[in-house]
Computed example of a mutant assay.
Amino acid sequence: MHNTRNLLLGRDADITVDKQQGSRNVGRKSMSYLVKMGFFTAEKDLPKQERHMIYIMGAEDVSDEFRGKILATIKRPSSERLLFVAAPEGKLYCEQQISECLGFYERQHKSDFEFYMTIVCGMILVKDYGDTIRFLLAEDRKTKKISFIKDVISYGESEKQASVRVVNHYTGIKPDTDDFRTEYMLGSGEGKKQKTIMYFGTYTEKKLRIPEDCSFRTVNLEFDKAIRSLDDPQERILLMEAKEHYDKKRKGRSGM
């Protein structure tokens, strides 16, 4: 089921709107929809009970028939029929945004969501050693792959809050976080999208507190060694951005 559902994510589809935003839920008259509702236009001639229901996000200005992208599939335990979440072309919503908007409706069904796009948050951590700076990176204990410390954003968090939480959870460090941030988008083997948001931060703690069940260990590397160690070309670019950012900060502090 999960493999089939993943194949549907990110697909384009022609969608027909049949319930406007603010309309009443048929089963619960006291409940109104925060988004428009619709179905696949190809199912127009089917009886209503046989159509797939679609939550439509970001469709305030679209006509009653439009081209959209499937951003999530929803499986209710009581039904074999999937529900969908879609948005007009050019608009993307991540799992946090969809859950925040639709969780009220689907929580009562104990529904299972599969999302097209996830948000990963982390931090590019640097420590000043006077004559040089070193970057704190994560080395996977099994694969030995080195990357930045990052994890999936939790429901209800801001991106900055998630970045600080992730670093604190995995290292015990409470970083001083710059407002400076960068982001990039990656695809996965399943066709999903991953939007990665990295803040820049410094730390002063002498001893790290790594959870016993952590799948990686931390490594503290100078720039030249760090950039050779990173496997992901995008992360090498981020490291260069970070070095430039912190070099400017250090020059500013020294009055140069």
Score class of each variant (00 low, 15 high):
6 N>D: 00
10 G>Q: 06
10 G>F: 06
11 R>D: 01
13 A>D: 01
18 D>C: 13
19 K>N: 09
28 R>H: 10
32 S>A: 13
36 K>W: 02
37 M>T: 02
39 F>Q: 04
39 F>W: 08
39 F>G: 04
40 F>P: 03
47 P>H: 06
58 G>N: 09
71 L>E: 11
77 P>F: 06
79 S>F: 07
81 R>M: 14
84 F>I: 01
84 F>Y: 15
91 K>I: 03
97 Q>A: 14
99 S>N: 11
101 C>R: 14
102 L>P: 02
106 E>T: 15
116 Y>E: 05
120 V>M: 11
121 C>W: 00
123 M>P: 03
125 L>C: 12
125 L>I: 06
129 Y>M: 10
129 Y>V: 00
130 G>P: 11
130 G>Y: 12
134 R>N: 10
137 L>D: 01
139 E>F: 04
144 K>E: 09
162 A>M: 03
166 V>I: 15
166 V>P: 03
168 N>E: 14
171 T>S: 15
173 I>T: 03
180 F>Y: 13
185 M>Y: 09
190 E>K: 14
199 Y>H: 14
205 E>C: 06
207 K>N: 10
211 P>S: 05
212 E>I: 08
221 L>W: 05
223 F>C: 04
227 I>L: 00
233 P>D: 10
236 R>N: 06
239 L>F: 05
242 A>L: 08
243 K>Y: 04
245 H>R: 12
246 Y>G: 06
248 K>I: 11
251 K>Y: 02
255 G>T: 00
